[in-house]
Amino acid sequence: MKPAKVSTPSDQEVLIERSFDAAVDLVWQAYTEPALMRRWLAAMPGWSMPVCEMTTDVGGKYRWRWRDDENNVEFGFTGEMLEVALHSKIVHTQIYDPGDMGGTMGDDASVITVTFDEKDGITNVATLIKYASKADRDAAISTGMTDGMEMSYKQLDEVLNAEART
């Protein structure tokens, strides 16, 4: 699949687009079932996801928390589901919980809209993150993204090996 495309439709937004070689029901499962979410959201060396509570009920709360066992630090995200349309759309709020990691992504919740669109067995997923302000967006990038989640790209081999063993 082509690498993710990232753009900034406005001052407050970031749009991430990516296609997956799978039917929408499978992609949906991977986005909504905690056991599966952990497999890709937490997949970074040395990190685990001790908390991965998810719901597809509108008004329901979700809670995700990552842990770096070696350095003994945690951080997470929480939020509320605003809109859920099976196999098509999830809208939820998101608040950064700095845990021991520190940093900030602003005090106000951002709103995340994930849309799923399947064509000929390929599912396009668009994730639009709307921060409460431009300052929040810039803070989110410089905080969580750079140090917090520098994580994963070396990780690919490890997962491939693990998959090969199963």
């Binding site: 997956f20 991977a30 599966l36 997949a43 990038i141």
Partner: peptide, 21 residues
């Protein structure tokens, strides 16, 4: 930077989806 973080996650997701299929 932002793209790399997401892409690394999505690569995990690719593998997961292959397995599910």
């Amino acid at each position: 930077q932002y793209r790399k973080i997401w892409e690394s996650r999505f690569e995990q997701l690719d593998m997961l989806l292959t397995e599910l299929k």
